[in-house]
């Protein structure tokens, strides 16, 4: 599903964010990525989103070599991913419904399909009764569930979440990770989640990968290895 081979990333200002990183994640895995601040976790995710490109090494996602993607292919690649951000990244002037519908609209979906699919996904994250609300009327936990609904709307094979519980109170944090866990268990969606919260990592007992100073320093190992 995901493979990092000898990946190096140095930013323009000289910061070495990743050094010779090797990582393989199989389809259907749930991986926590941990490490101190500035370790290079977000850089890893940004490379997966094709927001940044490695200086050397190869990244393969779903049989796509990211280095071969052209500018005009990138939107179509991103539609196969679901992204969840720490700051939710919801559009303030749009209702919950529209925020989720937006991600579907972008793909050229018909209004009819949108009207059918959005309520379905909203019910999955427990927000059916908040569809008409605006982001500023929701709690942090609820906002992140909207973000999650948006990430799910196009049935991605991979969800990338960068500290999704960073702005959410602890009880809600558990709920959100639990949702991701359910999505992984029920749909086989591969999930990569960056987090600082050790309590969550301990509670859910999934694969853990630790990055320090741009290097992979610990890996609890693949949960399932279809290729062995």
């Amino acid at each position: 599903m995901i493979e990092f081979r000898n990946v190096y990333k140095t930013y323009d200002n000289g910061t070495k964010a990743l050094r010779d990183l090797n990582l393989r994640v199989n389809e259907g895995e749930f991986v926590f990525i941990v490490g101190s601040s500035g370790a290079g976790k977000s850089t890893l995710l940004k490379i997966l989103m094709r927001e940044e490109t490695p200086n050397s090494g190869e990244v393969i996602v779903n049989n796509t070599r990211l280095s071969t993607l052209r500018h005009r292919d990138i939107p179509y690649y991103r539609r196969t991913l679901g992204m969840v951000f720490q700051d939710f990244r919801l559009i303030p002037k749009m209702s919950v419904f529209d925020n989720v519908a937006f991600a579907m609209r972008v793909t050229g979906a018909s209004t009819k399909a949108i009207r059918k699919k959005v309520p379905y996904v909203l019910s999955h994250v427990g927000l059916s009764d908040k569809a008409k609300c605006y982001p500023n009327e929701l709690s942090g936990g609820e906002q992140q569930r909207v973000g999650l609904a948006r990430a799910l709307i196009n049935n991605p094979a991979l969800i990338i979440a960068d500290e999704p519980t960073g702005n959410v109170d602890p009880r809600m944090s558990f709920e959100i990770v639990d949702m991701l866990n359910q999505i992984n268990r029920n749909n086989g969606t591969t999930i990569l989640m960056v987090t600082h919260e050790h309590a969550l990592v301990r509670k859910f007992r999934r694969r853990i990968v630790e990055i320090q100073n741009g290097e992979l320093v610990a890996d609890s190992g693949p949960e399932v290895d279809y290729y062995v």
């Binding site: 989103m49 005009r72 939107p75 179509y76 690649y77 991103r78 539609r79 992204m83 990244r89 559009i91 937006f102 991600a103 972008v106 793909t107 948006r150 196009n154």
Partner: peptide, 16 residues
């Protein structure tokens, strides 16, 4: 800008 960045993250084409 926020909207554009979200558009990009959910896979909007340049023309969209």
């Amino acid at each position: 800008k926020l909207e554009i960045s979200i558009m990009k993250s959910v896979g909007a084409t340049d023309w969209f």
